Simulated scan of single mutants.
Amino acid sequence: MNTADLAEGYHFVRADNADKTATCRGADISFEAGVTYQAIVDGFLVSDNLTATAENIQNDYRYSDHNPVVLKFRMN
């Protein structure tokens, strides 16, 4: 994520646990841990007047080909 490419007043937010919890999977087969392709595709563009944190939630793609992401905001 290169913030130099953003307009002034914006920054990127990604989950602190993004290196451990993927957010999407290949949908060509049923999910099987260690077999199914997984990737991290969720990141957020946030204006500088907000502080935001994100957390990827591991639920083994129970309802979708995406795991949920919780995003919390605080106004500065």
Rank of each mutant, 00 (worst) to 15 (best):
P68T: 06
A33Q: 12
R25G: 02
D5I: 03
D28F: 10
A52C: 13
V35G: 01
V41P: 01
G43Q: 03
K20Y: 03
V46M: 05
S30M: 09
D28M: 05
E8D: 15
T21E: 08
Q58A: 14
S47T: 15
F73W: 04
D19K: 11
T23V: 12
G9T: 07
V70Q: 03
N2G: 06
T36P: 07
F73H: 10
A39C: 10
D48A: 04
N67L: 10
M1T: 13
T23P: 11
V35T: 14
Y10V: 10
D28G: 12
T53H: 05
N2D: 15
T36G: 04
L45W: 07
T23S: 15
I29V: 13
D48L: 09
G26E: 00
G34H: 09
K20T: 00
A22G: 02
R14S: 15
D16A: 14
A22I: 00
G43F: 08
S30N: 13
Q38K: 08
S30F: 06
A18P: 02
D42V: 10
F31Q: 02
V70W: 02
N17P: 14
S30V: 11
V13F: 08
L50Y: 15
H11S: 12
N59K: 15
A15V: 01
A27Q: 10
D28I: 09
G34Q: 09
L71M: 12
N76Q: 12
M75I: 15
R14L: 04
M75D: 04
M75E: 12
V41H: 11
